[in-house]
Amino acid sequence: MKNKIIHHLSHIDLDGYSCQLVMRYTPYKTFNYNANYGAEVRQKLEMILENITKDKKAAIILITDLNLTSEESRWLNGEVYKMNDKKMDITITLLDHHGSGEASANKYKWYFLDTQRCATKITYDYAKENFDLDEPEWMNKFVNVVNAVDLWKQEEVENFEYGKVCMRLVTETRELNKIMFAEIDNNYKLSLLLEATKYINEENAAILLDEKIHSIKKDFFKEDKNDTLDNLSTKFIVKLLGDARAEKTIYYKGYRGYLSYGVGNTSIVGNGFLLAYPEYDFIVDVSYRGAMSLRANNKVSVAQISKEWSNGGGHPNAAGGRIIGFKEQYRYDRVKKQIEQVINDKEAVAGDLEYKKEEV
Rank of each mutant, 00 (worst) to 15 (best):
T91H: 13
Y28G: 08
Q338W: 12
A196P: 01
L353V: 15
M47S: 12
I90V: 11
H98F: 09
F221P: 04
N226Y: 14
D65A: 01
F220V: 04
I52P: 06
L209N: 04
T228L: 00
N67G: 10
Y277I: 09
Y251C: 13
Y261M: 03
V41D: 00
Y37E: 06
H97I: 00
I48M: 11
A318K: 04
Y37A: 11
F236W: 06
Y277T: 04
V263N: 00
D224T: 09
K2Q: 12
S70V: 10
V238A: 10
L294D: 01
S310W: 07
D55K: 13
N204C: 07
R289M: 09
V146A: 07
C118I: 05
S267P: 12
C118S: 15
N32A: 08
D134I: 10
Y108C: 09
P316V: 10
F31M: 12
I184M: 11
M180H: 04
D352M: 15
N297L: 08
K235W: 04
L113E: 08
A291E: 14
Y33P: 07
E72M: 03
S301T: 03
I237Q: 01
I305Q: 01
M292I: 03
K218H: 10
G272E: 00
A303V: 02
F142Y: 07
K56G: 06
P136H: 03
I207H: 12
S100E: 12
G16S: 04
E129Q: 15
E247L: 05
D125T: 13
K57E: 15
K107Q: 12
M1H: 13
N34G: 12
N130P: 13
H97S: 03
I12A: 07
L151G: 07
I52N: 02
L94A: 00
G272F: 04
K54L: 15
Y37R: 13
M47D: 08
W110A: 11
D227C: 06
Y355Q: 12
Q43E: 14
D345N: 14
L21V: 07
N34P: 08
R117S: 13
